[in-house]
Design a protein around this nucleic acid. Structure first.
Length: 617
RNA sequence: GCGCUCGUAGCUCAGUCGGACAGAGCACCGGUUUCCUAAACCGGGGGUCGCAGGUUCAAGUCCUGCCGGGCGCACCA
């Protein structure tokens, strides 16, 4: 399955170059998808722009482009409309031909061997639906999730984790070599207090290695903080711990390692629920030994300036609240380092040691300026070679119903675990209600119900997050994300399950005479609803192309929703066509294959969002 | 104060490199269970795109100013 948009763009580019004697690389074909079906599938907006440049009437220019345009194998005859739009409408033959060529699903063989009511999914979907990988695979680091180990993961980490994973999946799908890096906060002054609290509350933890268990990290932190504030002696010992940690005192390091290990166990329990895999934990401490070298490099290259006893890098275009140049501090006046230094060391390590071609930071918008400065510094010191190498994907905040930052009633941060548990409990209630209604679902056993509830709940939280524009804040709302109607995971998963159900029913309805398999049947498009569905399916490759440039998951959720709606129209009793009982046989096979390809696109698309599908729900 | 970001239907949100009459879902009104699983489907009404200028053949989109919400601004990370 190839991108029709990119194929057509090439044709239009060639035609414009030919018509006006331009170099193809100087031509912008300005080809976009039409907003209204009545204008066809794609429109070229280049003529209006060229009019001024060439001093000719836009409609004349459009005509000259059309005269050179060779698109017979894809489109009907081009039409010029309005001020000079060139409208292109794909032919039925092209649409049918493209769909007919869709390669078979490599997962089909494996799937047919599973007989349970719910097919468990492990690992990535292998089905590419004929979409090619990029020509030049890059090594890409996705910096994501990155909780602070001192505390429990809270709702603030949701977006980075979910968006980062989706972006990583999209890049992997394209064939890139992706490293998900969890830049966890495992270093800093608050660890002195936590380690002291471990020493006092679990004194035997060190003897019984690996025996440190903290059931509630959040409570642990709060208690330690309280002791720190109330007890001067405790505070004093805490500060000593920080010093000992920094000087790598073996006993202190041992406790610190146990604590980090225990905290990471909490994190990975969440990642497991979320289905985030291949996330490499690489804490700030990892870069500790490199910090001196980083500072040295800035000094040697003449980019570090002393200011008020601290060592700073001054970058053009950044000013502080008083209008003075805003420095990036790489060494404090006491000789210590801060997070700017650590982040710089991480960039250097990723470029020099991991050989990253690109580094993508999935971190909230409030940190935008920090990353602008960080990237500017990395460029100044000569690590990053071009502007595309370092990218900050910023996102908005998760808000409560009142539009304020999402908090518990007590004003604390909402634990991610509690949030996901609540989503699952709500989803289970809905599943159980539906099972009680009987029908096809009455034989669902406990484990099936659990699996459905879990998949729907996690999918709902992720989909709700990903379906919003990255830049916007959004209001967290269980009812909205678990709604069966609208652009939600339950709707998408249900649409998928229904299509799969059609396939099962069609299988059992196969008689001797109509036993033809639909997996490689020629696609025949007759009805409007079939054509509409076909067009929608074939947009998938260009959506993937766009995602690789824009890295905006909500483009994908919108597309999948549109695809579902097109499918529902296709299957609609009144407006659609017959499928399972369609006659003659070649039409039935064609329509069943359309169902199958739709399901595959839905499944693949949802997988790129990190959402699992279920065969029945 | 400087900077970033958002403001689109009653509510929640989309809106591509500026492109043709501004989209979806919820809610509201009406219709649909003899191909799938009604957790569904189909149809309808509903908008001064915060305000005012400007650029352009064309502005929700770009520029300027203002109003309103959120956020960031060196020894915490």
């Amino acid at each position: 399955m190839q991108s029709t948009l990119s194929a057509l763009s090439q044709r239009v580019t060639e035609a414009i170059a030919e018509a006006f004697q331009l170099k193809p690389e100087d031509v912008n074909p300005r080809l976009t998808r039409s907003q209204d079906d009545k204008f066809g599938d794609y429109q070229c907006n280049a003529a209006m722009g060229l009019a001024k440049q060439l001093g000719q009437k836009p409609r004349d220019i459009a005509q000259k482009i059309v005269d050179q345009l060779k698109t017979d194998d894809l489109c009907e005859a081009p039409e010029i409309a309005g001020p000079g739009f060139i409208n292109l409408k794909l032919t039925t033959e092209y649409l049918a031909g493209q769909l007919t060529q869709t390669p078979p699903n490599p997962d089909d063989a494996a799937a047919s061997e599973q007989t349970g009511p719910v097919r468990n999914q492990t690992g990535p979907v292998r089905d590419r639906i004929g979409i090619p990988t990029v020509e030049h695979a890059e090594t890409i680091v996705v910096d994501m999730s990155s909780p602070n180990l001192a505390k429990e993961m809270h709702v603030g980490h949701l977006r980075s984790t979910v968006i980062g994973d989706s972006i990583a999946r999209i890049l992997e799908f394209a064939g890139h070599n992706v490293h998900r890096v969890n830049h966890v906060g495992d270093w800093g002054t608050q660890f002195g207090m936590l380690l002291e609290f471990v020493r006092q509350t679990q004194p035997d933890a060190l003897e019984q290695k690996g025996n440190l268990v903290i059931n509630d990290l959040e409570k642990f932190y709060v208690q330690a903080k309280k002791r720190f504030d109330d007890d001067p002696e405790f505070a004093d010992r805490s500060r000593k711990n920080v010093v000992q940690l920094q000087s790598h005192d073996p006993n202190t390091i041992a406790i610190w390692e146990m604590f980090c290990h225990e905290s990471l166990r909490h994190c990975h329990a969440i990642y497991e629920i979320l289905g985030v895999e291949n996330l490499v934990d690489r804490g700030e401490s990892f870069y500790g030994p490199m910090l001196g070298d980083v500072v040295e490099e800035f000094k040697t290259k003449g980019h570090a300036t002393e200011s008020d006893g601290a060592l700073c890098v001054f970058l053009d275009g950044f000013t502080s609240r008083d209008g003075d140049p805003l420095p990036m501090m790489i060494q404090k006046s006491d000789g210590g380092y801060n997070y700017d230094t650590t982040d710089l060391a991480a960039i250097r390590h990723r470029i020099h040691e991991m050989h990253a071609d690109r580094i993508i930071y999935v971190v909230g918008i409030p940190q935008k300026q920090h990353f602008q400065m960080l990237f500017a510094a990395a460029e100044k010191v000569g690590w990053s070679s071009d502007n595309n190498m370092l990218t900050h994907i910023g996102f908005g905040s998760v808000l409560g119903e009142d539009g304020r930052p999402f908090k518990t009633r007590e004003g604390g941060s909402v634990k991610l675990k509690d949030l996901l548990d609540e989503a699952e409990a709500r989803a289970r209630r809905v599943v159980e209600q539906n099972v009680e209604k009987g029908g096809d679902r009455s034989h669902f056993d406990e484990s099936t119900i659990n699996h459905i509830a879990r998949t729907v709940a996690i999918g709902a939280v992720k989909y709700f997050d990903l379906s919003h524009n990255l830049a916007s804040d959004y209001k967290f709302n269980f009812d909205n994300m678990l709604a069966m109607e609208g652009n939600t995971a339950p709707y998408m998963l249900y649409a998928y399950a229904r299509i799969r159900s059609i396939a099962r029913k069609a299988d059992t309805a196969n008689t001797e005479e109509n036993a033809a398999t639909s997996t490689n049947a020629p696609i025949v498009l007759e009805h409007d609803s079939e054509l509409r569905l076909a067009r929608m399916i074939l947009r998938f490759p260009e959506i993937i192309d766009t995602l690789l440039v824009d890295l905006r998951p909500n483009l994908l959720t919108d597309y999948l929703f549109d695809l579902s709606k097109a499918f529902n129209m296709f299957y609609d009793r009144k407006q659609g066509v017959r499928v399972i009982d369609a006659k003659p046989m070649n039409i039935r096979a064609s329509r069943l294959r359309l169902c199958d390809i739709t399901a595959r696109v839905l499944k693949t698309g949802l997988n790129l969002l990190g959402i699992n599908t279920i065969e029945r729900m």
